[in-house]
Structure formats: structure tokens, C-alpha cells
Nucleic acid binder design. Structure first.
Lengths: 160, 160
DNA sequence: GGATGTGAGTTGCTTGGCGAAACCGAGCGT
DNA sequence: ACGCTCGGTTTCGCCAAGCAACTCACATCC
């Protein structure tokens, strides 16, 4: 039989069963950044449409994303993060900072700020100005020094 | 042409170019847990040997792992985390905690402790007893309530 | 009213990454 | 001399992912 799952008694392995497929974490990142619609995500990532459809429905089935209708006729949907999805924020922040540090020669493409005081957020998800321990809802992202000048600004609407 | 890279101006995407292939993060987790040799990792993960060889050499090329000879004749190697690799600790901790919370019905398979005070480590990599902000070197792992009873204990030697 | 556009997918063909298992070579134990 | 271990490489076949085209339901432009 083929060994498709990791099949390990380990929370990293179990997380990767859900999050580890190609594109999955980037889809979640896009939703964190306010991209909620199929076409917006597809254009942003350049992922094949069938693969995006598969990832989205898997994430909905896993309770990480939630589909909400925003238009009755024609029927159109948006994807939102659930509580389970929002709790991936520390994972995203940690990966982002690692990439900023080791792979972003031109500086961080995106900088995360604390909504309340405007301070930047460190790799542990804490505010560097006021020291508060933040959650996804307490923060917003802005283009940083390493951002692509031609890139559209990050959608700023709340992730929830 | 095939779209093999994510090709995005984003630190999460760039990190995933390096870390996002199947097995890569689990190889790193194993090295964090003191498994440093080809056969030990291969047995633990059940990954195909050719794939493991490819992942290890990629990680060495990226400067995340470092190959050290531990036997002259026959020539044998061990893999260690570099500073760049050790800095992935917050990522591993965050993923582990998310998996513990949402995917570990029987409790956490592994619990991370602060070496100095023995307190447990939270999802931000901070000590829950003394509040210290920890690095990979300050912590060790132990089997938790959800561990497989038959599992061998985690190798305790330092990761560096 | 015909052409064009958009949102949200599905279908079908193709390709290359991954899995399985065999093989290899240097040295070690007996 | 024979097998065993460690650290891989080789070979081969399958399936997940890529690409492009198609669908369906509406909306808008001319």
C-alpha cells in the first residue's frame, strides 16, 4: 500500500497532514490578508483552478475556513477563517519572520502592526512597542521595505 | 512551462519554497528531537530513502542543516541544525501547539519544557512558569499524555 | 439582442515528484 | 567467508499537480 499519510504520533505531523499540501498555507495567508474570493486567490497565487477548488473544500471540511454567501443571485461565496483558522496566526507569523530574516534580501515584503499602538509584531506574535501578546484580530499588515512596488496594497478589512 | 515555484514577493511563500516539500519539516523536527543519522530518520518517518537523501542534501545546500563526519573509516555523517535551522524553532513550536489543540484527541504527544525551570512552553515559545522568552537551546521535549506508549523516548542530547 | 466579462468552479489530458524495492560499497563482527 | 550495518543511488511505476478548455449563471456594454 502507498504511504500517503505521515502516520505519526506527533502534532507537527498531524498539522502537516492538514496544512502540508502544496498551496494550502498560501491560501490561508491570502485569507488572512483579506483575499476571500476564489478568483482573487487564484489570480494572486497563479495556482491551477482545480487545485484551488480542492484546497478550499478541504480547508472548509477541516473547519479552518468557512464559506459564506455574499450574493444570492448569482450565488457567490467568500471564504473566512474560523477560530481554528485564526489560531494559525502564530504559525504564519513565525514563518513570515523566518523568511524575512533569511530569504528577504530587499527587506520584509510585509510588516505586521499592532492595531492599538501601531508597533511592529515580532516573530512570537508580540508587540515590539507595548509588549502585548497579540492574536490575529489585534494586528494588521502593511507593505514593507521589500514589497514589490507594483503590488496592490494588502486588503485591510478584518479577517473575521 | 510548469509552475514549480510559488514566485511570490512574500516571506511565507519564500519559506515554503525551502520548507514546503513533503517530509522536509518532519526531517527538521527529527533533528530537533536528536535524530541525526540517515537510518534513524528513515526508520522514524518511513520516508523513501531516495526522497530522504534529496531532502537532506537540499537542507544542507540551504544552510539549514550541516553535515558532520562522526566516523572516519567508514565515513559516516550526522546532520545538525545550523543557526538558521535552529531559528525555525518558533515555527515548529507554533505548529506543534496548533496540532495539540485541534488534532490531538488523546492529549499532546510531546511536551516542551524550559531547561532552567522545568516549566512548559506555550505556543509562542515562552515559558509558562517563569515567563522567559526561549530559544531552541533553552528547551527540551518529553513524551506527553498523548504519546504512543510503545514509542521510544525522545533523544535528549542537545540539538547543536 | 449579441458580444463580452466575471465568478466559481469542472473535465480531461500530461508531466514529474514521490513511493517501493533492489542494488551498492566500505567496513565490522564472528 | 558470510552476513550485517550505515549511508546512500538506481530503477521503475503511479498518482497528485499542472495546464488548458469548457460550463453555467448572471451582468453589462454597445
Amino acid at each position: 500500500m502507498l504511504n500517503r499519510e505521515y502516520d505519526q504520533v506527533c502534532s507537527v505531523a498531524r498539522s502537516l497532514e492538514v496544512l502540508g499540501e502544496r498551496w494550502t498555507l498560501l491560501v490561508i495567508r491570502d485569507v488572512f490578508n483579506g483575499k476571500r474570493r476564489f478568483d482573487a486567490i487564484q489570480r494572486d497565487l497563479g495556482v491551477a483552478r482545480n487545485v484551488l477548488a480542492a484546497r478550499l473544500s478541504r480547508l472548509v471540511a477541516e473547519g479552518i475556513l468557512e464559506k459564506r454567501r455574499y450574493s444570492e443571485r448569482p450565488t457567490r461565496y467568500e471564504y473566512f477563517l474560523t477560530g481554528k483558522g485564526l489560531d494559525l496566526w502564530p504559525v504564519m507569523v513565525a514563518m513570515m519572520h523566518w523568511g524575512d530574516r533569511y530569504l528577504a534580501d530587499a527587506g520584509a515584503p510585509l510588516v505586521i502592526h499592532h492595531k492599538e499602538c501601531g508597533g511592529t509584531v515580532d516573530e512570537r506574535g508580540c508587540c515590539e512597542r507595548c509588549g502585548a501578546r497579540l492574536e490575529a484580530r489585534d494586528a494588521y499588515a502593511e507593505p514593507g521595505p521589500g514589497s514589490d512596488a507594483t503590488a496592490p496594497a494588502v486588503a485591510r478589512a478584518d479577517t473575521v
